[in-house]
Simulated scan of single mutants.
Amino acid sequence: MFRVSLCTLVLSLGLLASSFSHAASIADGDIHKNDFKWFQFNLMRSIDNKIPFGNQQDTYFEMEFGGRSGILDLYGYLDVFDVFDSRSDSDRHGGDNFFFKLAPRFSLDYMTGHDLSLGPVQEWYISTLFNVGDAALFEQYVGIGTDIQVPWFGKVGANLMARYVRENFGAANEREWDGYILSTNWFTPFYHFENSFISYQGYLDYKFGANKISDSTDRSDSSLEWFNGLYWHSKRYAAGYGLKLYKDMALLKDGGFAGETSGVGHYLSLTYKF
């Protein structure tokens, strides 16, 4: 009983401290008071990945970054596939070279000069997202987002956005608004050593309402990607394992012309932090 009560107390104090800091930044006009940035390189190995068209195994390089500067909250990464140019090691050999994700969010609290927090809801944003592949893929999203304090998890980002299809490999829904995405993400340290810790980190992306393409035999109006990672972190290094659940990845039905798009995939990662 005491351990549960202590945990609840710590979470409550953390929520109060975060709320006071946010409110103070708005009250004194110093929106850069809590600025930060991070940048890291990841060497990734995917196993039984459910990327459409048989892209299941790959060793790739990832440049990942994020931070906060005033009204701007930013996350992004660039994946470079088949990094060792290996015919035997990569399903992407001779295929796509990269994938780029950029997710800028713009604080409504800081833009309006008002603390819009309410209970566990800490801050509100105009959320945007860009998914870009080097072979005719370009998706843009815009909507509303927030940060929510969740027991044990800590701060969880949540966004609901509409999807605009700029390029989609020549599909009929190009240059159309088609569907929505509900996305969440979290980073939760839960076991600490003297100079390092273990975290549970991940995200859930649920796309739905995409119904502008008529060939419904192979296309789905919804899809799910749920990543669950356990990572060891030190100041400069990290290493981890991620289990990812897929359902109709990229809005392509499992077993259709895109191949296997539902099931479980695995990821191994080695990281250097700057």
Results as ranks from 00 to 15, higher is better:
N173A: 08
L74I: 13
H93Q: 14
E194W: 13
E139P: 01
N168F: 07
Y191E: 00
G143Y: 01
N131P: 04
G95C: 06
N168K: 07
L78V: 03
Y200T: 11
F197P: 04
D89Y: 00
G145Q: 06
G145A: 05
Q149K: 08
E139F: 08
F138G: 00
W124E: 07
E139H: 09
V121G: 01
Y191N: 00
S117H: 14
S183N: 10
I126M: 06
N195M: 06
V80G: 08
V121C: 03
I198F: 12
E139S: 05
F197V: 07
S196V: 06
L129G: 00
Y110N: 12
S107I: 04
D134K: 15
F169P: 00
D134V: 01
A136V: 07
F130K: 02
L204T: 06
L129I: 00
W124H: 12
V156Y: 06
F100V: 01
D89V: 01
D79M: 03
R105M: 06
P189D: 02
T128R: 04
L160H: 11
R105S: 09
T112Y: 03
L74V: 10
L78Q: 09
N195D: 14
G179H: 06
S127E: 10
S127P: 03
T112V: 09
K155W: 05
I71P: 03
A135I: 14
I126R: 00
A136F: 09
G143C: 03
I148T: 10
G154D: 03
V83T: 10
S90G: 10
A171T: 15
K155D: 05
Y164N: 08
L182D: 07
F153Q: 00
P120V: 15
A135D: 15
F130W: 12
W124V: 14
L118W: 15
I181T: 09
V150M: 11
F190L: 10
R87N: 14
N185C: 06
F153A: 05
T146M: 00
Q122A: 13
A103V: 06
F100N: 04
S183E: 11
L74T: 11
Q149W: 05
V165I: 10
